[in-house]
Amino acid sequence: MAINNGNGLSRRNFLAASATMIGAPALAQNVNEGTTEIEREVTSVVRRNISSFRTLDWQPYFSNLTKGAILVDISSRALHFWEDNGNYHLYPSSVPLTEDLTRRGRTEVVRKVEGPEWRPTPSMRKRNPEWPEYVGPGPDNPLGSHALYLSWQYYRIHGTHDTRKIGRRSSNGCIGLYNEHIAQLFSMTEVGTQVLLI
Rank of each mutant, 00 (worst) to 15 (best):
4 N>E: 14
146 H>D: 08
192 G>W: 00
198 I>K: 06
191 V>A: 02
125 R>E: 13
17 A>R: 09
23 G>C: 03
132 P>H: 14
122 P>I: 14
165 K>T: 15
187 S>L: 06
37 E>R: 08
131 W>R: 15
193 T>F: 00
162 D>G: 05
22 I>A: 09
108 E>D: 04
142 P>N: 13
45 V>Q: 01
162 D>N: 12
36 T>H: 12
165 K>L: 14
54 R>F: 06
33 E>L: 09
57 D>V: 14
64 N>M: 12
27 L>N: 07
164 R>D: 06
54 R>G: 05
107 T>W: 11
50 I>L: 09
53 F>S: 09
134 Y>W: 14
53 F>I: 11
15 L>C: 07
74 I>N: 02
139 P>V: 06
34 G>I: 13
26 A>D: 11
78 A>F: 05
186 F>Y: 15
9 L>C: 05
123 S>M: 15
123 S>I: 12
122 P>K: 10
26 A>Q: 10
153 Q>S: 10
146 H>W: 02
90 L>T: 05
73 D>Q: 02
9 L>R: 07
60 P>T: 07
151 S>M: 10
170 S>M: 14
103 R>K: 10
117 E>Y: 10
12 R>P: 01
39 E>W: 13
83 E>L: 03
17 A>W: 10
112 K>H: 04
25 P>R: 12
120 P>E: 05
90 L>N: 04
103 R>L: 12
79 L>Q: 03
68 G>I: 03
2 A>R: 13
125 R>F: 11
17 A>Y: 09
45 V>F: 01
107 T>L: 07
153 Q>G: 02
119 R>N: 12
4 N>W: 01
195 V>N: 00
29 Q>I: 14
167 G>L: 13
101 L>I: 02
171 S>N: 04
